[in-house]
Each structure stands twice: as structure tokens, then as C-alpha cells.
């Protein structure tokens, strides 16, 4: 690959140095460390790898992490859509503050979120205390994991759906209404299909983030092996027992899972952008294309 075919000629200077720095930083900080995980795993035999990644305790942690992340992302898909809808379509007091507050889970350190959620949802907390008389315990049970993962994933769906709803042409809804469709039918057949790719992207981003989450979960989960122990914690526990190879094997399983989701999200976003561009071409006056997810 010669330089000429590698890049198109440009009048601007500085490609060599900036590209070089970018590649050097990327290799040193991201690629070499990531490669080390796979190389470390390769020191295990296949049987050892399978044993490390499929022991009963690890399997239980996969199950809990997967289902808590899935339910959390589903709740976020429903309520995130509702929040985006309310923020785009309606007016109410303090709307700007509510809009800004949606990003709180991105800005609040996970450890702080963890102890705060544990305090609120513990059986002597503000919400835990209300539920305790009914025998419902949230903190220190698998439900606590779900609460933390819902908190962590909250902004993703809102922030992916919001720009698409804003760009949506309401003329389409008016046309459907003029043709006699009920409000519910307009929503289900006109609005929802347009928003679905964004909704799926937001759901996948929230799910991916929840799979790897650690800080906010460990304070509220109780961390009982086989019952309320997430996969990230299994890795930390193995590390603390100096089982480096075992920890790395489980980490590689998680890495592969999250890269698969990343691939899925990229495909979805590519489709989403294509769809928006098509709309832009038909109506040039329409507003900007959405800038996509912003985790």
C-alpha cells in the first residue's frame, strides 16, 4: 500500500504527524492492551478455557447480568421513549431542566450512583421502606441489579429517539388523521415505524452499557455468589484470588459479546442515517440529520 493510493492528495498539511500520533496513541492505549487479553487467554488450553468460563458460578453470573441488563434496557425502551415523546411534543414547567437532567447517569460517577440507589431502595430507604411492608426487597437482591442497570441505561434511548422525533414531519400525521385514522392508529402505523430504528439503537446501547457495568451495581446487589453476583464482579473476584488466566478468560467472553453488540449498533445506525438522508432529499427544507447516539 503506497502513500498515493492510501490517501487522496490534499492541500492541507499535517496528515503525517496527526495520523501518526493517532495511530501511536491508539495502539499503545487501546490495541496492545486489548491484544494482551487475547494472548493471555491463549495460554490456557481449550478445556481450561471452557472450565473457567462455564463453571456454575460464572454461568449464574452470565444469566443474572444478561437478564437484568435485558429487562433494564426494555424498561428504558418503554419509558425512554415516553420521556423523549413528552420532551419533544408537550410543554410543561421546568422542561429544560428535566431535559438536562436526563443526562445525569452519564455525569454522575457510578460509585455515587451505586450508594445513592442502595440508600433509596434499601428496606429503610425512601422507596425501599414503602415496599418493605409488602415483603418486596429491592436492594441486596437481583432486583437491585435491575434498578442500577435501569439507571445507567436511562439516557441512551431518550437521546437516540429525541432527535428523530424532532425531525419527524407532523404533516404525515395530519395526512393520516385526515384520511380518518384514529390517534392511536396514527401513532402505531405512522410514528412508531419511523422511530423504531432509533429505538432499537438506544435499546442496544443501553443493553451493551448494562452488560459491562460495575460501579453502580456492586453497592446495591448484595453480591451473593450464584444469586446476585454480576459477571464484572466475578472477574474482579478472580483477580483478587490471583487467578489472572481465569479472570481474562471470562473477560474475553464479555469482550466478544460487547463487540458483537457494537457491530449490531453500527449496522443499525448506518440504516438509521440512510433513512434520514432519504427523507432529507425529499424535503430539502427539513431540519438537520440527527447526530446519532451520544453516549
Amino acid at each position: 500500500m503506497t502513500t498515493l493510493t492510501f490517501r487522496k492528495p490534499s492541500a492541507l498539511p499535517g496528515f503525517g504527524i496527526t495520523f501518526g500520533i493517532t495511530l501511536a496513541c491508539l495502539s499503545l492505549v487501546v490495541l496492545i492492551p486489548l491484544a494482551s487479553a487475547f494472548v493471555k487467554t491463549a495460554t490456557l488450553s481449550w478445556d481450561q478455557f471452557v472450565a473457567a468460563t462455564t463453571s456454575a458460578r460464572v454461568l449464574a453470573s452470565y444469566r443474572l447480568t444478561f437478564f437484568a441488563a435485558l429487562v433494564g434496557a426494555l424498561v428504558n425502551a418503554v419509558f425512554g421513549f415516553l420521556v423523549a415523546w413528552v420532551l419533544v411534543r408537550y410543554t410543561f414547567p421546568f422542561k429544560r431542566i428535566v431535559d438536562a437532567a436526563v443526562d445525569l447517569p452519564f455525569a454522575l460517577p457510578t460509585a455515587v450512583a451505586g450508594i445513592a440507589l442502595a440508600a433509596v431502595y434499601a428496606s429503610n430507604g425512601w422507596i425501599g421502606g414503602l415496599l418493605a411492608p409488602f415483603g418486596i426487597r429491592i436492594a441486596y437482591t437481583p432486583l437491585g441489579v435491575f434498578v442500577a442497570l435501569t439507571f445507567i441505561g436511562l439516557p441512551f434511548v431518550v437521546r437516540t429517539v429525541q432527535p428523530v422525533l424532532e425531525d419527524f414531519e407532523r404533516e404525515q400525521e395530519e395526512a393520516a388523521a385526515c384520511l380518518g385514522a384514529s390517534r392511536w392508529r396514527v401513532f402505531a402505523r405512522v410514528v412508531l415505524p419511523a422511530v423504531t430504528p432509533a429505538l432499537l439503537t438506544g435499546f442496544a446501547l443501553a443493553f451493551a452499557r448494562a452488560l459491562g457495568e460495575y460501579g453502580s451495581v456492586i453497592f446495591i446487589a448484595g453480591n451473593v455468589p450464584m444469586k446476585s453476583e454480576i459477571t464484572s464482579l466475578v472477574i474482579v473476584t478472580k483477580l483478587e484470588q490471583y487467578d489472572y488466566a481465569g479472570a481474562t478468560a471470562v473477560a474475553v467472553v464479555m469482550l466478544v459479546a460487547s463487540f458483537a453488540i457494537l457491530l449490531l449498533v453500527n449496522t443499525l445506525q448506518w440504516r438509521l442515517q440512510r433513512r434520514t438522508r432519504r427523507n432529507l432529499r425529499t424535503v430539502p427544507a427539513a431540519v438537520a440529520a440527527p447526530d446519532g447516539a451520544r453516549p
Binding site: S36, V236, T248, A251
Partner: peptide, 21 residues
């Protein structure tokens, strides 16, 4: 895509990578 990669790596695994190195 590679630049975005750290966002999809669990924080615990990020730490683990440097312990391995």
C-alpha cells in the same frame, strides 16, 4: 470504530488489561 472501542469495553476489563501488561 477503533477509537470508539473503549466505550464498549467494561470498565473492569479496562483495568484488567493493564494488570495483564
Amino acid at each position: 470504530t477503533l477509537i470508539d472501542l473503549p466505550f464498549s469495553v467494561s470498565p473492569v476489563i479496562s483495568g484488567l488489561l493493564y494488570v495483564l501488561l
